[in-house]
């Protein structure tokens, strides 16, 4: 079967991503830069990424660029700050003798298209203050909220999803 040009470039991109991720995992596992270990690592990652790179086409990984790297770093910093805030929030709710919780389940919408972007968004929502992804269907997310501030879908989308979506939209555009 003949491949079109964008598909072939997409597969090549996936191959390089997979190769570098596997090589980094190998280096972290062996923790040595001796040339023998290093060459075995390169060989293994080459074989594995040749076999497996077809399987990740559906994820829709974007091409690499300077802007995307900058936004990824900003996204990581924002995510880490949110994780720390989430932990302090949950710790306060657990320790407080009256347990100030107001739980509920709400629905929000997302504008992201790729599967990998939706997965990152759902996992980020799980790790941030008081919210937790229960289910995804198309562009709709079912969220459990430990302290419901708004039952309206648009407002809830603005409060929960917007702080990550503005970064993810640029990274996966």
């Amino acid at each position: 079967m003949a491949k079109t040009a964008p598909e072939a470039s997409h597969q090549r991109r996936n191959f390089f991503y997979l190769f570098f991720i596997l090589l980094i995992i190998w280096l972290a596992l062996t923790s040595s830069f001796h040339w023998q270990e290093f060459s075995v690592g390169i060989l293994l990652s080459l074989i594995l990424s040749l076999i497996l790179s077809k399987n990740y086409l559906k994820l829709g990984l974007p091409p690499i660029s300077l802007k995307r790297i900058a936004f990824s770093i900003a996204f990581t910093i924002v995510l880490f700050i949110e994780i720390v805030k989430a932990n302090l929030d949950v710790a306060y709710r657990v320790i407080h003798p009256k347990m100030p919780i107001k739980p509920g389940i709400v629905v929000i919408k997302t504008t992201l298209k790729q599967d990998i972007a939706k997965m990152i968004l759902a996992n980020s929502i799980t790790l941030t203050p008081g919210t937790f992804t229960l289910d995804i269907l198309g562009d709709t997310l079912l969220i459990h909220w430990i302290n419901v501030q708004s039952e309206n879908m648009d407002e809830a989308t603005k409060i929960i999803g917007e702080r990550f979506e503005k970064y993810l939209r640029v990274i996966f555009s």
């Binding site: 932990n87 949950v90 657990v94 919780i101 739980p103 008081g130 430990i146």
Partner: peptide
């Protein structure tokens, strides 16, 4: 944080709230 997560799993009222405490606190 790990201890608070474990404590939250014991204390909070239903399974969804327990997952909240059990995920966030133990991850960090």
């Amino acid at each position: 944080f790990l201890f608070l997560g474990n404590f939250g799993v014991l204390r909070l009222p239903d399974v969804y709230n327990r997952i909240q405490a059990g995920t966030k606190c133990t991850t960090l």
